[in-house]
Nucleic acid binder design. Structure first.
Lengths: 160, 160
DNA sequence: CTTCATTTTGAATATTTATACATTTTCGAT
DNA sequence: ATCGAAAATGTATAAATATTCAAAATGAAG
């Protein structure tokens, strides 16, 4: 059955292209391309292709081709346009908040924050992709988050 | 529960060390270390740690920490080793760690650390010869040291 | 073209893993 | 301390995935 090889290529391609989170989903995609197979065969194919399943943010689980993991990230980086889009995440430790951004975004983001001089923030220090925010004593985590949303409303989707 | 942090570290460690092929297996290992948890919690931990399951030769399936899978990263190992030579010392103050390096090394070293996104570290900021590392709450000094060694094995000689 | 060994596959099923729901614990604010 | 909200966890179960077993397809050798 020569089909096997072609089919596995199609599977690989589908995984690289879309965010696929279950074998059933993948099964339908490949079937729609004209291949005949069942979940059992798909499971075997995935083993042969060394496909892995990892958690994708809070969204769920996705299949990945191990070698393609990095490429994926690169592609993501290139479609960044707006400043707030450079935001990655925000975490706290004591009275410090650490905001991580995409590479190169930290200093411009920090400038924006500093310029508005929010009461909640005593100061910031920016590297290339990380901003350290020193919070005023008594300021809560959600106070800080709110003040950041005030500065960059677009953050609300990512922080809310 | 501070346990959660330590437990997840233990899980990560177990995955890196042994070939683990099911959550049940992992569950027993972690339980034997004195942690109390169920498969449900383990499943959640694996999601948080972004652990992936891939096929391992004809043997079966094993859990892996994605960064360790990446072929791309393998090639990078030599570069990382070189960078580790720039390391000078590491000191702690509360939840902050300060790593001093030879002039010019700090930012590239910090990039290496950031890229692996170790659980123990919520962010870094690098100058020219100093890196400020903000540790996750509940992480001990030796936890941090271990995570750094994981990233740059060469550091073991200088930190161990 | 047979025969035999090997590979591939599907159906059914066992195993494994994720999650809904309820409960407990933790943590921040007052 | 006390309250309330958010996070963490266990139990039970649903959902997803791997594998067993039997059958069909393929291929090599006569």
């Amino acid at each position: 059955m020569k089909n096997r090889i072609k089919r596995q290529l199609a599977i690989k391609q589908a995984i690289i292209t879309g965010r696929i989170s279950s074998q059933d989903e993948l099964l339908h995609i490949v079937k729609d391309q004209g291949y005949e197979l069942t979940q059992a065969t798909l499971s075997r194919d995935l083993r042969i292709l060394k496909v892995a399943k990892v958690s994708d943010q809070a969204l769920g689980y996705v299949y990945v081709i191990p070698e393609a993991v990095n490429t994926e990230n690169q592609r993501e980086n290139s479609r960044v346009n707006f400043l707030a889009d450079g935001f990655r995440d925000l975490q706290f430790s004591g009275n410090l908040a650490v905001m991580r951004t995409m590479p190169g975004y930290a200093s411009s983001l920090a400038v924006v924050i500093d310029k508005t001089e929010p009461y909640e923030i005593i100061g910031t220090i920016a590297g290339d992709d990380t901003i350290l925010i020193i919070m005023r004593e008594g300021v809560t985590h959600s106070d800080l988050i709110n003040s950041l949303i005030l500065i960059m409303p677009k953050l609300e989707e990512k922080l809310g």
